[in-house]
């Protein structure tokens, strides 16, 4: 395999470049997926049937915690990639570890939030609005969960194999995925929670 040393490690081979472009295209498809879920949510947000509306169930505190935790994790993974570019394996692993830990924290708060809703009688089966809400949040949450597994696997590989063109490529792609989830969350925060609480 030809390695071009003038480029960052994650871009250094032909295969790596293809993978990064391919992942960008995949994120394009993910944008369409989430746009569709948002469209469904906006269509159904007033169809609350006999269930509670958004302003009844949304609470600011857990949502703010989720937002801060996830935004910080996006920052730490950025630091992780920076460390990777500098060739500092240990710093890179530390930042990735923090990122995953924050992701886990986000997931924990979100699950608690879901339990609260269900406890208040707002289940996925109650109304079309709640079906759309849980599906949108749940899809994002499932992506975060998958990200934790994936990120964990990459971390193990970096630990075992060091920073090679392969592991650097995987780490970089994972960081794109993680930033993307953050962007989706910003939309959820603004157009689901903020708008719903107003």
């Amino acid at each position: 395999m030809k390695i071009d040393h003038s480029l960052p490690l994650e871009y250094s081979t032909e295969e790596n470049k293809l993978k990064i472009l391919g992942f960008w295209v995949f994120l394009g498809a993910e944008i369409v997926l989430f746009s569709t879920l948002f469209a469904v949510y906006f269509t159904l947000q007033n169809n609350i049937g006999n269930g509670p509306g958004g302003s009844h169930i949304f609470e600011l505190t857990p949502v703010m915690i989720e937002t801060i935790v996830l935004l910080s994790s996006s920052f730490t993974i950025g630091l992780g990639i920076h460390a990777m570019r500098l060739g500092n394996k240990k710093a890179m692993m530390t930042f990735f570890g923090i990122t995953l830990f924050l992701g886990l924290g986000f997931l924990g708060v979100e699950i608690m939030e879901f339990f609260t809703y269900v406890h208040e009688g707002a289940t996925m089966q109650t109304s079309a609005f709640l079906s759309a809400l849980f599906t949108l949040l749940g899809t994002h949450g499932a992506h975060v969960t998958f990200g934790l597994l994936w990120g964990g696997a990459i971390l193990l590989q970096v630990k075992k194999r060091g920073l090679t063109p392969e592991t650097a490529n995987k780490s970089f792609i994972f960081s794109l995925y993680w930033h993307f989830l953050d962007v989706v969350w910003i939309f959820i925060f603004s157009f689901v929670y903020m708008k719903g609480m107003m």
Binding site: Q125, T126, S131
Partner: peptide
């Protein structure tokens, strides 16, 4: 991706009791 979402909602409605396309509860 639009088909992916549509089919997922269909599965949720049919097998998990959600109300996306239901005739009541705002579907």
């Amino acid at each position: 991706p639009v088909l992916t979402v549509a089919l997922a909602l269909m599965m949720l409605d049919r097998q998990f009791g959600t109300q996306f396309f239901a005739m009541q509860n705002g579907g």
